[in-house]
Design a protein around this nucleic acid. Structure first.
Length: 274
DNA sequence: TGCAGTGTTGCTTC
DNA sequence: CGAAGCAACACTGC
């Protein structure tokens, strides 16, 4: 599921529905979700009881619960993780974690079980590699800072866009969409991009991510909000998942797909120059 | 039926 | 440093 707009959709849901609630207990049938957390699940279970959820924020694709007593819970949804509330979580066979709150249950479902949760003080967690290497996202950057973050990077632009330490929040779907709207071939090299190209990348990142947030994210397959409802951005996607279809957006030629690393890249061979 | 492919990322190897 | 390959899992679709 989750790139920046999907995670932001979940964060806004959580903020509205469980901010200020107290966590009474937590249970899991898959403790490996907590395997990267200092002390593992047992320490989470011991430490989290009675803490209030003071606020919920996001860093890149990570959800951050700010708990009373200066503790944080940082959640990465990976491919198929999700939070559900109320009916959406009951009788759902993919739920592996139950947070018992003072007003109901917060369910964590995860079909592929890649999702990871960290719990501890900000001091502890910020030392962990997978937290400290996350860069700012395009929505919190001005053009100049955005441009500068690519300054030392060389190589394939799509790989650079997916590198969360340069800019966070962009994943496979939005990287393809941003490159298409910017008329840049996914294999083009960072060192060959002009300032005008970066201006387009910055601007289009913001336009696409904002628009997707406004429509509740993209539900390719599994993504749901906390009520179990689908996001609405898929119908706005111009290239992702549209291999063989016409580039109706601009030129009518057929969308192609190629492999970059182990991931698929969708693009229009006519609009997007190398 | 079987196998390739899937929105993420971390680790290892080159 | 970059990139490729694989691993972590379970399901869908050809």
């Amino acid at each position: 599921m989750p790139e920046l707009p999907e995670v932001e959709t979940v964060v806004r849901d959580l903020r509205r529905k469980i901010m200020g609630r107290k966590i009474l207990d937590v249970q899991t049938d898959w403790p490996r979700h907590f395997s990267r957390s200092p002390g593992g699940f047992l320490r989470v279970k011991r430490g989290i009881r009675g803490r209030k959820i003071e606020s919920v924020s996001r860093k890149g694709k990570r959800i951050i619960f700010h708990l009373s007593g200066g503790k944080l819970m940082i959640v990465h949804l990976k491919m198929t993780g999700n939070f559900l509330l109320g009916e959406a979580g009951e009788n759902n066979k993919f739920v592996h974690i139950w947070f018992f709150l003072d007003n109901g249950i917060l369910f964590f479902s995860d079909i592929r079980k890649f999702g990871r949760i960290l719990y501890g003080t900000s001091h502890e967690l910020e030392r962990l590699d997978d937290v400290k290497n996350v860069g700012p996202d395009p929505l919190e950057l001005g053009y100049k800072e955005f441009r500068e973050r690519f300054a030392k990077r060389r190589g394939i632009i799509k790989s650079a866009l997916l590198d969360q330490s340069i800019v966070s929040g962009v994943g496979n779907i939005y990287a393809d969409e941003i490159l298409h709207k910017s008329k840049i071939h996914p294999r083009k090299l960072v060192e060959n991009l002009t300032d005008a190209d970066f201006k387009k990348l910055w601007n289009n990142s913001r336009i696409i991510l904002e628009k997707s947030i406004a429509t509740g994210g993209t539900s390719m397959r599994d993504f749901r909000n906390t009520e179990g409802k689908l996001g609405g951005y898929l119908s706005f996607c111009r290239v992702y998942g549209r291999k063989g279809e016409a580039c109706l957006y601009r030129c009518g030629s057929k969308i192609e797909r190629l492999k970059i690393g182990a991931r698929s890249a969708h693009f229009c061979p006519k609009c997007q120059s190398r």
